[in-house]
Each structure stands twice: as structure tokens, then as C-alpha cells.
Write a protein that binds this DNA or RNA. Structure first.
Lengths: 146, 146
DNA sequence: TTTTAAATTGAAATTATTACAATTTTATAT
DNA sequence: ATATAAAATTGTAATAATTTCAATTTAAAA
């Protein structure tokens, strides 16, 4: 059940705690780029003694070890992504869902050509997702037929 | 002095107020991607009755009209950029300065090929800027000679 | 099993932002 | 120039997100 996450923590010489395992599992199984609040409310159902500070501490150290990644794509809250590899994000302005975008960034070279040493890239795309576009067409007819 | 900003506000049918003019001028002349707090502290020197709420209100409406742009590149605060055209940002992890990066994004097409309609792009690059890299070389010798 | 360093917890503090009601100001019509 | 109405500014209070901190508990090494 948790072997996978135990292994990850041990690989990083991090202590294995039930809280960290639950947080990792939640992020891995949901992939919904949740806020601390979302993780907290969900996990608190099964572990009523869980503290929100623990979530803050855990996501901080998990990110520091490069196990997870934080996002600041919308609103005032930080969101967390189980994936830590380089990829971008798209947020739908209609439904609010955040999608992972698997693209390698073709402009790093050009930025580095200006003398910058690039260590991280965060690409945030905002617009309307496929599903919401299709719904719009159903409702309004194709190409805004009025 | 302020004619430029008066013109911008009028073009958008926005009321012209001294506060808005000062905020626009500050953003235009500094280009340091300041937080609300930074704008507030600076402008308050000359206009002691200025309210922080006014800064929040103003940057909100200026952004809504596409006159300025907001950034969420580091920390918990929103930063503001006088430029509203499409460009990216680089933050130096050493000196904390934020640089404008003028690159057109070559991946929009590929994102849209996946069915998304892209309306905004925010590219955040993090690393070490040219100046800080050069300082490192001065201090440590070239290529980490120890 | 003991020990010790690290993690968890909950409360309090801090920081960023938003809400709101009273007052003032802008810009239009007179 | 003046009156008016709508909108902006202000200061305070409320909310929301995050951080700090000290006490307690726990993980894992000896």
C-alpha cells in the first residue's frame, strides 16, 4: 500500500511518518494540485488528530527534497503537485481544473544566451479547457451562432 | 509630467485620480516589479494620507483593464509590472531581482493542439542572473577552482 | 530497550488580502 | 462656475494563508 512512498522517503533519508505517507498518497492518487487546506480537510477525516501545521511542514520538506513541486497559478494559495519533473500547467478559467502540460521548454537556451543561469521553469497557461469549450459549443451552437 | 498616465486612464474611461497617476508613474519609472507594500511605503512618503486599500483597489482595476500585469513569482505576495504585453520573467535566487524576459512563447500552438484555448501565459524562470554569476567567479575563481 | 534527534501538534502571531461604511472626489450636466 | 451622481479613497475591521514556537510524541539508530 505505502511501500512506494516509504521507499521514496528512505531514498531521501527522510523519516517515515504516517502523516508523510498519507500526504504523498493523497497527492499521488488525486493529481488535483490541491492546496494545503484541501489536503488537510481530506486527511483529517481519517486522522482527526492531524494538524494543519504538519501539512505545511511536510509539503515544505518534500518540496525541498525535490519529491513534490509547488504551484502558484491562481488565487492566494500555494498548490502542490506530486510530479516534480519539468512540466507546465494549464488552468481552465471556467471549471478551475489544473492540467499538467508535458512540454519541454524550448526557450531555456535563449534565456541562458542572455547570461542567466536557469535552474527552474514554471509555465502557467490560462484559458478554457477542451471540455468547457465543447460545452460552450453545445450551448451556443458552433462559432457563436446567435 | 503625468500627461502620459492621464491619457492611459482616459483611453480606458477610467477616472483620473492623483493616486492612480502616482501608482502608474511609480510602476513605470521603477520597473522593479514591486509588491503592494513596496508601492505603498514609497508613495506614502509624499502622500501621507494614502491608504493601502487604495493601492489594492487601483492595481486591481488597472490589471482588469489590461494596463498593468500581476506576477506571482516568489513568496506570498503579488507583484505588479507596468508592462502588460506578453513577456516572461526571471528571478535571481541570489539578489532577488526580477527581470523581464522578452520572448514569444513558441509552445502555445502545441498546447492548443491538445484542445486547450490559451488566453494567458506566464513564464517564470528561476536561477542566477548574469551579475551574480560574475560575482561568483570573482570570489571563487573560474569554474569553481578551489 | 534506551536514547536522541526529528516530527507532530495546537495555539498564537504574522502577513497578505478583502470587505465595508463613511467621506471625499471626479466628471458630467446644468 | 455649480450642483449632482457615480465612483474612488480612506481607515478600520474581518478574513485567509502561512509561520513561529514550545510542549509532546515518535522514528530509527545504538
Amino acid at each position: 500500500m505505502f511501500e512506494k512512498y516509504v521507499r521514496i522517503l528512505k531514498e531521501h533519508s527522510m523519516k517515515v511518518t504516517p502523516q508523510r505517507l498519507e500526504i504523498l498518497r493523497y497527492l499521488d492518487e488525486h493529481r488535483n494540485h490541491p492546496t494545503v487546506e484541501m489536503i488537510y480537510l481530506e486527511l483529517k477525516k481519517r486522522s482527526p488528530s492531524l494538524s494543519k501545521t504538519t501539512i505545511y511542514n511536510s509539503v515544505e520538506i518534500l518540496e525541498k527534497h525535490g519529491i513534490i513541486q509547488s504551484l502558484r497559478i491562481i488565487g492566494n494559495e500555494t498548490r502542490y503537485d506530486y510530479r516534480s519533473d519539468l512540466h507546465h500547467h494549464f488552468i481552465c478559467k471556467k471549471c478551475g481544473r489544473i492540467f499538467d502540460i508535458d512540454l519541454t521548454c524550448p526557450v531555456i537556451d535563449r534565456v541562458e544566451k542572455n547570461g542567466f543561469k536557469v535552474e527552474e521553469i514554471h509555465g502557467y497557461f490560462k484559458g478554457i479547457c477542451k471540455d468547457c469549450l465543447e460545452k460552450e459549443i453545445e450551448e451556443n451552437g458552433p462559432k457563436g451562432t446567435s
